[in-house]
Design a binder for these strands. Structure first.
Lengths: 335, 335
DNA sequence: TTGTAGGCGTTATCAA
DNA sequence: TTGATAACGCCTACAA
């Protein structure tokens, strides 16, 4: 069905080797160039990437592995990665593992089996062993958002600690003393760092932390919803709540609406991610904004660099800054 | 580096053919089974999908092609597709074409070059020729969300016409006569159908359509924002506005907030998609909900069926129903 | 049940 | 500059 180099050879009267060389940028007589181009058009020839990959062990393809396709944080980064990679002639294969550990491993193997030249991974599991295997096979890997033990590769991270520090500091300077935090799972890298910032700013301002104000969710809507309710139903509820990712922020707002909590008079709020959200709800929400564009671009450019064999400063660890977007969801407490 | 069947053969003392047969489910003496399994584990063997694909012209992989990764409508469907496909042993390759026509073609070719066995496509361009080429190569294709001329394949659509009919009817029965619509581009399949529903319900209720109330956006946030402003600034503004996709609904709400329009007292609103949205904003928003899960599952199961060679009723065209979720954003006008 | 051998489409080496 | 030829790793008749 599909035309092969052989067909081109037949059509042009040249040899397979010559055609192949031309296709790969080699030198050929001008008149043969024309002839081959004609044949390619005529026969609608396209290289068989399987055959080529089998031979070269390369695919000109980058695998991207993310936890969940429905998280705008993930897809936004992916989209930015793609922009860069496409410009440089690489295709991408996007996989999500639905935040499932075995599936993460499976998808990673799938990507490897497709002979990707490089991999950009937002990892989930604690175990870097499988990723290290890929690296050992010569695949260049860049981790994003979360670092991992036991893996020898570049990482692009967000400065989670300071993101929390800044958000909570905003509460503190406005006079809040009882500040709740709806955080991610204890064992997750980003959640740990975000909590660390919460502690540190309390310490720096000499405010005692009430451990009951620290809630651990799972970064999903539901837990944002439930944990906010828990907080407002406390005997001595917080006057401010900081929520550490987008989905849980959504959930928290649902709870706030349902319980008719007035923002910011009854409760001050700082959420996370998704600029749009800040403008959609009323009053406009103060949020921590992660640099999705920078994450994607940094990771893509770094990978590109490694792919070209430039291993300067390997392994390198980037820390990208978040931005605190101040709107009207934080109330100043007069003292 | 990576182990091959040849290595397994050496390790076990068996022949390549025997190993291959076993790997592909053939019968082998029990003791050889054990031996081979041991070798596979020991040498960490994994099939080279390139070599296999080259030979078989199959990849056990389904390509999914969508307009934009950051649209929850797309990714939600994709996620549902994946669930089904994975269960049946298929891997997926997700590509987005950033709503760009040339890129759509390029990514499609990429997928084809990866020897996907099937393709689920949410098409953008008007031209089905390239898709037809894929079909001619024996790739099974299912189109979702939008139909296309010149392509001979199954389609899974939403009943757009009735979705609009129902939404606008809700306004009409509550006494509204001047109903604005923020619709997608004139030439887009879904937009055309949604507009058709708008017209039809007006006709059925004998309400004259004021063409000035019909706005065409591009399904992005910005146009929702701008067009809503246009509508409320009209000399004789509508009392209700129906917005026909998620992103434009977001934009419209931004405008509403900015201009301090009171919903539903000053303006009644029905939006589109994303259940969460309905709960997040105040007052809760009435919306048209598309059956993302059903779309994904229907498409995946249909493709699976075709892949098994079952061509009953080919080409088939599904029409999935939307749901109208009534909340508090529509006011009843007393007459 | 097992093994031999040819070929999938490409690239790459080495002569011509 | 061009061409013959041997891989790449796997599958599949067919023969043993």
């Amino acid at each position: 069905m599909a035309a092969t180099i052989k067909d081109i050879a037949k059509y042009t009267g040249l040899s397979i080797a010559t055609i192949s060389k031309y296709i790969n940028g080699g030198n050929v007589l001008e008149k043969n160039k024309i002839l081959i181009d004609e044949a390619i058009k005529e026969l609608n020839y396209q290289v068989n990437t399987m055959a080529r990959g089998l031979k070269t062990n390369k695919s000109n393809t980058i695998g991207i592995l993310i936890p969940k396709l429905e998280k705008i944080f993930c897809t936004s980064i992916v989209s930015n990665i793609e922009d860069i990679l496409l410009q440089h002639g690489y295709s991408t294969m996007i996989c999500d593992y639905k935040e499932d550990f075995p599936l993460e491993e499976e998808k990673l193997k799938f990507l490897v089996s497709k002979m990707v030249d490089g991999l950009i991974i937002m990892p989930h599991g604690k175990d870097g062993a499988i990723i290290q295997e890929a690296i050992d096979k010569g695949i260049k890997v860049v981790l994003i958002d979360r670092a991992l033990d036991g893996v020898d590769c570049d990482v692009v991270l967000v400065d989670n600690m300071n993101s929390s520090y800044g958000a909570v500091e905003e509460f503190i300077t406005k006079g809040h003393k009882r500040i709740g935090i709806i955080n991610g799972p204890r064992e997750v890298f980003t959640a740990k760092e975000r909590l660390e910032g919460y502690y540190r700013v309390h310490r720096d301002y000499s405010i005692k932390v009430d451990e009951d104000l620290i809630k651990h969710g799972d970064f999903e809507i539901d837990s944002g919803y439930k944990l906010l309710i828990e907080l407002i139903k406390m005997e001595e509820p917080p006057t401010a709540v900081y929520i550490t990712n987008y989905e849980m922020t959504l959930g928290a707002i649902m709870a706030i609406n349902e319980y008719n909590v007035n923002i910011p008079n009854q409760l001050s709020i700082i959420g996370y991610d998704n600029l749009q959200l800040a403008r959609i709800i009323k009053p406009p929400l103060s949020i921590v904004v992660q640099p999705m564009k920078a994450i994607g671009e940094t990771a893509a450019n770094l990978l590109l660099k490694r792919l070209q064999g430039d291993m300067t400063n390997f392994p390198i660890r980037y820390r990208l800054k978040t931005e605190l977007l101040i709107k009207d969801s934080v109330r100043k407490i007069e003292s």
